[in-house]
Design a protein around this nucleic acid. Structure first.
Lengths: 194, 194
DNA sequence: TTTCTGACTATTTTACAAATTCGGTCATTC
DNA sequence: GAATGACCGAATTTGTAAAATAGTCAGAAA
């Protein structure tokens, strides 16, 4: 009981600190202080700073999985589901403090652990998309293709439309993004010749 | 005559040095030495280091424009032309020493001038694609859409398929890239319902 | 007179050492 | 036996002296 409580205190303190200060600027002393725990106590649960960080990243990934699952409606068409899932995932991603902080830390300092954490989160999104694409292929909703390739492309396309484009073009509205996503990926740009 | 010659010597020396050592590690003394010219002479043609660098970047962009124009066959379909142009541009991009060096410098040191130079080159590619997309829309070859948006998406998709994907997936062959590019962008993933 | 030059200067970058901070340990405490 | 925080070596930061560099300009070369 006391053990469980201490572990939770540590995890909560770590989540708070990593979100607020990033990986590098979070010290084990600080985590201990926020958790009102001796520094040694942290090491009874996690063998080092990286493993503690991993735990926090994993919690975020789990949270994202729940969000995604909540958006799936098996009776709706694949592209509708895809749209809703990516929408909610990217909104979560752009609002979650830890992810914002890690992105900033990566840009500013290039901290490898921040990069790895973000990669794990991206990998989880792609893995999730992959299974949905596989399902859609089996259902005959989309043409046969490599789910990994298509998943990566989908995520990149979404990021391009929602974020990268804004450097060169006025930001697109939600409806525009939805329309372009469908136009490009689902229907294709080629003018039907018949 | 002597003036023209000196200017060319400076430009050639600068091109060589920026390609070999990047922006930061290229010194004006070194450029002068390679060009067999006094350092002051450089400043009679270019007001500072950044402007000299700009000249070199512009030469690369011009070269790329020629390469692209060489690939365009007005009698062929848009997607064939697009494929060939992107292919040759990205091959050029991945083999040109200046671009390789600037990419490395950006990754390694984050030199702002290297970043800006690469952005200009990318902007030129997108601008070129934009005009081609406009042409294709006018010809009725592709559906009406914002050429800027589509150009950015096309370039990003191509980079994803040729480079980014390799971190998570076995590299695709040239024919596979071509097939996915068409499948995704031109034909669309959605299974035709009739 | 005009063109070109490299020694010169002010500023930035680097190199290095001292001081500080930090991740991780472990003898002691509770 | 679980929890702690003083302690340790390694890593990072800081302060600063030395070196390098972009840009100038008085004077040499043409």
């Amino acid at each position: 009981m006391a053990v469980v409580d201490r572990r939770r205190q540590v995890i909560e303190a770590a989540a708070k600190s990593f979100s607020l200060f990033g990986y590098k600027a979070t010290t084990m002393d600080q985590v201990a202080r926020i958790a009102s725990v001796g520094k040694g106590t942290i090491y009874t649960f996690f063998s080092n700073k990286e493993q503690l960080f991993d735990e926090i990243v994993h919690k975020v990934i789990l949270e994202m999985k729940h969000i995604a699952e909540r958006e799936i409606r098996r009776d709706k068409p694949f592209f509708d589901n895809l749209q809703r899932v990516l929408d909610s995932l990217l909104e979560f991603r752009s609002e979650h403090e830890l992810i914002i902080k890690l992105s900033q830390e990566k840009r500013e300092f290039g901290t490898p652990q921040a990069q790895e954490g973000l990669d794990k989160i991206e990998g989880a999104i792609i893995g999730y998309l992959e299974r949905e694409v596989e399902h859609a292929i089996r259902q005959g909703e989309i043409k046969p293709c490599d789910p990994k390739v298509i998943s990566v492309v989908m995520l990149k396309l979404y990021i391009t439309l929602t974020a990268e484009l804004n450097k060169l073009h006025a930001p697109l509205g939600k409806e525009e993004i939805k329309a372009y996503f469908r136009l490009i990926l689902a229907e294709g740009l080629a003018q039907q010749t018949m």
